[in-house]
């Protein structure tokens, strides 16, 4: 028997009718009032709690009016510092980052740093610059020839990996390609082209510093010879020094003045000897 079947049952219908007729009792009004009051109070209390929570925050801001602007300023400063850090600190960027702009910027920064910290003295700088220019002009002179050779090799099918090429020829080719590679690795950025000494590779810097040290040692030895008045040895040593470190525009600011004077003196003497010897030979 379902719920509907119960509804159709005659006895149940009578019970229902009669029960509903007399079902008129209601709770006392005092109970109604109590319950409704409790229900309303609960709603107001809930709203009051939420309002108080909100007003606590508002009160705090009102009590300390500098909270809000201070927090805004802090946010701006922090975000700006993060942006600056990202933009200018290469270590801050992840290693996988390879943006060209970033590379150029970091190179500029390196150049600035190097300019700020002059590790190499001015004459040495001039010297390294002259050396670099000489190498560059040499490379430029060789380059068209090497490029033509490389092109020729590319065109001929046998040349690339021919097993018949002799060992001496292979080594020659390797040298040529290395020279071509060196010639092709020109300074990439405009800054590098303008200030090549600032962008020396690490190995080149090492070589330069070694050269400076050896130059200093040589000068030290020369000074010792000068102090010990070993003129003959000093003469030979000075000649050797000049071979190693030729004059740049007739100037050598590294060599001490006494030694330079001696060098000039002996140079003049040598020349006069040569001049006096020449007519005898004729």
């Amino acid at each position: 028997m379902s719920s509907n079947e119960f509804d159709k049952d005659k006895d149940f219908q009578i019970l229902h009718e009669k029960y509903q007729d007399e079902a008129t009792e209601l709770p006392p009004e005092s109970i109604d009032a109590n319950i409704l009051q409790a229900a309303h109070r609960a709603v107001h209390e809930q709203a009051g709690i939420e309002k108080n929570l909100h007003s606590d925050v508002v009160k705090r801001f009102k009590k300390h009016p500098w909270y809000k602007p201070m927090s805004y300023v802090a946010i701006i400063v922090i975000s700006l510092s993060v942006v600056m850090k990202l933009a200018f600190d290469p270590e801050f960027v992840e290693p996988g980052f390879n943006g060209d702009d970033f590379v150029e910027e970091s190179q500029t920064l390196e150049a600035d740093e190097m300019a700020a910290k002059p590790v190499v003295s001015m004459p040495e700088k001039q010297k390294s610059l002259a050396k670099f220019n000489a190498e560059k002009s040499q490379q430029q002179a060789v380059m068209p020839e090497l490029k033509a050779k490389a092109k020729k090799r590319m065109m001929s099918p046998k040349s690339a990996s021919s097993p018949t090429v002799s060992a001496s020829r292979q080594s020659e080719l390797r040298l040529e390609s290395a020279a071509a590679g060196a010639a092709l690795s020109e300074p990439a950025t405009p800054m590098q082209r303008e200030m090549p000494d600032m962008f020396l590779q690490e190995s080149e810097q090492d070589v330069l510093s070694k050269e400076i040290i050896s130059q200093k040692n040589q000068i030290k030895k020369l000074m010792e010879l000068y102090e010990n008045k070993q003129n003959e040895k000093l003469k030979i040593a000075l000649l050797q020094y000049r071979k190693d470190y030729p004059l740049i525009d007739g100037v050598d600011n590294v060599l001490p003045k006494v030694l330079r004077d001696l060098e000039i003196k002996w140079e003049i003497e040598r020349k006069t000897e040569n001049v006096s010897k020449t007519p005898q030979n004729d």
């Binding site: 079902a23 009792e25 209601l26 709770p27 109604d32 229900a39 309303h40 709603v43 809930q46 709203a47």
Partner: peptide, 19 residues
């Protein structure tokens, strides 16, 4: 938070529940 909703609900069910 609607107290009026409770009033309606209470009026609907107070008689039946009380009985």
């Amino acid at each position: 938070g609607s107290a009026a909703a409770f009033d309606v609900l209470y009026a609907r069910h107070k008689g039946g529940l009380y009985r």
